[in-house]
């Protein structure tokens, strides 16, 4: 046995090594080393991404489980990672004005009204202007478009001061839905986005329609709008999200009867955070009610939201 082994070793031992054999072996060796390195790198990447994903998800998790805890359990010295009992009544408390002192149901409704109306009006205005800028030839077109784009560079805070005076002192729109809708109907960015989309539709289609005697509006409705549906969906979702998330402006111009949900949410937080009676579970239930619809919309329309966002850099 031993002798045999010895022989074998001698046979395979690289005494009379040819240069070619050596190179092959080296390649095998480096290939294996590379593979091992690659696996380690992949493990490292997944580890890193998992840790980051947990950090990103943790607030959502905490929000969800806290929203169904009892106040006593939430306030216990050592926080529990899973509720001992599910207190669904926290959600009912969010809507009872007795428990919160704020009519959050009303504010949800207000937000939906403002969101829907402003989205529809804004789509109409955006489509009409984008059509004019993309399809029609007229003097001063480039100047108008350039001036519109230039306004995008100015921060919104600069407008807020004057718009506050205009809306409250001059138009007397304090505490109306108009104050929440009209100033934000036109977004130059959306007009720009849609114009780019309209430009991709061949002009021959428009000319053919004209020859057939189709009116502009019919052409818009039958051809351009269906062809640019993805952009219009992006605009719709981002606009609705804008209404859902707006805080500063509604807080400035309207009172409780017309208030939007985010302001109500903040009022709830101020009321239930400090003092001797903190109630975080009800707060978190309210947060869930505001956050989850957005997450559902995102999961359904992921593609459209990401498309719109990657080009804008702004929320809403």
């Amino acid at each position: 046995m031993e002798a045999e082994n010895m022989e074998k070793i001698e046979e395979t031992s690289p005494q009379p090594e040819t240069p070619r054999g050596m190179a092959e072996k080296d390649i095998n060796k480096t290939a294996r080393a590379q593979l091992v390195g690659k696996i380690f790198v992949q493990i490292g990447l997944y580890l890193f991404l998992t840790v980051m994903a947990v950090i990103v998800l943790f607030p959502f998790y905490w929000m969800l489980i806290s929203s169904v805890k009892s106040v006593a359990e939430y306030n216990a010295l050592n926080p529990t990672l899973w509720p001992k009992q599910f207190v669904w009544s926290n959600y009912a408390d969010v809507f009872s004005a007795e428990a919160t002192g704020i009519d959050l149901g009303r504010m949800f409704l207000n937000t939906v009204i403002v969101g829907v109306v402003s989205t529809i009006l804004s789509l109409i205005v955006t489509v009409l202007s984008a059509f004019a800028l993309a399809r029609l030839e007229f003097r001063g077109k480039n100047i108008v478009f350039g001036a519109m784009l230039a306004t995008m560079m100015i921060p919104g805070e600069l407008f807020t001061v004057t718009n506050y005076i205009t809306v409250v002192n001059w138009l007397d729109w304090g505490n109306t839905f108009a104050a929440l809708i009209v100033p934000f109907l036109v977004s130059v960015f959306y007009i720009y986005l849609l114009r780019q989309n309209f430009l991709q539709i061949p002009n021959e289609l428009y000319l053919a329609a004209k020859v057939d005697g189709t009116s502009d509006l019919k052409y818009l409705w039958k051809v351009m709008i269906p062809l640019s549906a993805p952009t219009l969906i992006s605009i719709t979702i981002l606009k609705m999200m804008g209404a859902w998330n707006s805080y500063i402006w509604p807080k400035l111009v309207v009172g409780d009867s017309h208030q939007l949900i985010t302001v109500g949410l903040r009022e709830l937080a101020s009321m239930f955070s400090v003092g001797n009676n903190p109630n975080f579970p009800v707060q978190m239930a309210a947060v869930v009610l505001v956050t989850v619809p957005l997450l559902i919309v995102f999961i359904c329309f992921r593609k459209y939201i990401m498309r719109g966002v990657s080009r804008s850099g702004t929320k809403g």
């Binding site: 991404l49 980051m52 994903a53 990103v56 998800l57 943790f58 607030p59 959502f60 905490w62 929000m63 806290s66 306030n75 999200m241 859902w244 998330n245 805080y247 985010t262 949410l265 903040r266 937080a269 955070s273 001797n276 903190p278 975080f280 707060q283 978190m284 947060v287 505001v290 956050t291 957005l294 997450l295 919309v297 995102f298 999961i299 992921r302 939201i305 990401m306 966002v309 929320k315």
Partner: peptide, 30 residues
């Protein structure tokens, strides 16, 4: 993972601020 990392974008700044407050907050009564 891409979807998970995008989630914070589609949230309400005030709402999740309240969650961060809740996570870091100590409660002392009386």
């Amino acid at each position: 993972l891409q979807t998970i990392f995008f989630l914070p974008y589609v949230t309400n700044g005030i709402a999740i601020g309240m969650v961060f407050m809740a996570m870091f907050n100590m409660i002392a009564i009386g």
